[in-house]
Write a protein that binds this DNA or RNA. Structure first.
Lengths: 331, 331
DNA sequence: CGGTGATGTGCAAGCGCTTGCAAGATTGTT
DNA sequence: AACAATCTTGCAAGCGCTTGCACATCACCG
């Protein structure tokens, strides 16, 4: 009796009466093998229960079909839709995604970059903004494709797909000013992205003749509870703002719920805006005015870039997917 | 001039004046190499910028240090905390997680199982309940460690870590009956897990002398908007329920918001319960009565099992992490 | 019917690392 | 100072697949 062990290409080949090379070709470039041979191989594969060892394949081809996605977190993340869409698309192409968590402040970024490099991933997808110059230099020096998403750095490591956070902040300032608000208050998660939006907002607001907005910084990841907290913190301000600009839809949602519980009407007594246009923003009562970013579009662009690279084509290095302010009931 | 190419073990070895084997040992079992040698190797690694090729390592050791996590989705999933905790823990052990999405109804499960097997992952972690007998048989026949989480099947594929959904339903029935509610209405996401809780609830409720609860089925993944929808659907019932048992905290939250918008007080006019004890459940106004499942504990047990397996120890096949009903304001 | 180009397959040399075995270097012992 | 025990290291044979090159077939043509 033969020892039970997981079958290899050889086993299939032997059974089909061909060489391993032919089986390999059958698997990777089916049209070069003759129909009759293919049929025998198919039968042999079924009989042996053979599952190709992608590790060996990766070593031989120097192509892992592994894509690393580095994200701060997934428990409550605005990137989840994008990541989900990416995983789906990539899976359809025969790639797998190894998901690595870098932590809110990218503390584990360096380590995860090393791991990704060690696994010889075909590409590294960064989410958020990597500000550490060492990490940037390190990535640049490798040949690997690296795609920065959700931001649009002046000097991308390789390819970047996103939008200008600063500009989104400015646009929101313009929008609210146009609606007649006069005393905005910012609730700003401590992340580079949020900070950029906040400073974009502030600069534009002031340039347009407004007083510098008040602000509250909150920890990331942002969540519903912080919205409640942020509402209560409004009491500490010298004057109640007429609109609170929140760094995320979750914060906006929490703030609205807490305001209502306190008997304050939104937007009549205080208006609120969010960021992200999560599904809940449209479902909340009142519906939340927010900034829409097309995460699915980002995912699609990522795929497009990856395919182009695989085909050896050149690709743009900065792809702006833009954003839109969605005016709803809350502001 | 030497051709630039990514450095290999050989390159480091040559530079350090030792054999590749020694460098390999330095990397994997540092204490067996002499200090002076180690120092030279360290220097050589730094000088060459060498990053070990884990693909080659995996092939040689037949150990990929890759764990596949198959989840229905991540956009809005009650499993996210568990997955996040697992990824963190595994990363600390030098493992990486390849995340695969199986879709709400496990439609892509088969394909993802094949991919995981092909990548020769060290373990497959399933989330939710895999009811397809073919998939179960297929997994069982492989030697791979497979861990089913968030459920507790009678006959685990290999190891299962979770709790009894049926029992959670029963417990909720008991709890609400004890609080004096009489006309429960169930909002049930179309997933095996939710269905088990619902039938556990119903059976217990009836056994205890209640009338069979009314119910509404909603699609997965469940979200805030469905809660709003579910509230409006209450109008179609012959009689308004006194408590709505929701399949998730998100649904509960949406339902509460919509009820309040309609001027209905929670819990006075209608009580609400959720499931999952997400952070927002404690933050919502009113706070939401729900069922707590310790996702972090599940993650820790997964790690423990994986380590035990790696060490060649035997492990239990069913690990019950239980659940707790968290009584709050909403019911 | 020999020549030609296309088509299908096999041979064998890798891909970059790990590890059993054995030999050389060191240390301690008597 | 000779010998045993312990450390360190190198050799070389894989791990399971891919692919350039060469060869064998075969259909087709003049």
């Amino acid at each position: 009796m033969t020892i039970a062990r997981t079958p290899r290409l050889d086993d299939v080949a032997a059974r089909a009466g061909v060489s391993a090379a032919t089986v390999s070709r059958f698997l990777n470039t089916p049209d070069v093998v003759k129909d009759a041979t293919a049929e025998r191989i198919r039968e042999a594969i079924a009989a042996t229960g053979y599952v190709p060892n992608m590790t060996a394949g990766a070593l031989a081809t120097n192509r892992s079909r592994l894509i690393a996605a580095l994200v701060p977190d997934i428990a409550q993340s605005i990137f989840n839709d994008t990541v989900e869409a990416m995983i789906d698309e990539l899976a359809a192409d025969g790639n797998s995604v190894v998901l690595a968590l870098t932590g809110a402040d990218n503390r584990r970024l360096d380590r995860e970059i090393s791991v990704a490099l060690g696994r010889r991933v075909d590409a590294i997808i960064l989410t958020g903004i990597v500000s550490d110059p060492d990490a940037r230099a390190r990535l640049r020096s490798q040949g690997t494709t690296v795609i920065e998403t959700w931001g649009l750095p002046d000097d991308p490591i390789d390819v970047s797909i996103g939008f200008s956070h600063r500009q989104a902040g400015e646009e929101m300032a313009r929008f609210l000013r146009g609606r007649g608000y006069r005393r905005p208050h910012l609730v700003v998660p401590r992340s580079t992205r949020s900070e950029r939006r906040a400073s974009g907002f502030t600069e534009r607001w002031v340039r347009d003749g407004g007083e510098a907005p008040t602000r509250l910084d909150v920890n990331v990841p942002s969540h519903f509870g912080q919205g409640r907290f942020s509402f209560r913190a409004l009491a500490d301000l010298p004057e109640r703002p007429d609109v609170v600009v929140c760094g995320s839809d979750w914060i906006a949602q929490g703030l609205i719920v807490e305001a209502q519980a306190a008997g304050i009407r939104v937007p009549d007594q205080v208006a609120v805006t969010g960021f992200g246009n999560l599904r809940l923003a449209g479902d909340m009562r009142p519906t939340i005015t927010t900034v829409d970013v097309d995460g699915g579009r980002i995912a699609r662009e990522v795929i497009r870039v990856l395919r182009a690279r695989a085909a050896g084509e050149r690709v743009e290095t900065r792809i702006d997917v833009g954003f839109r302010i969605i005016a709803r009931e809350s502001a």
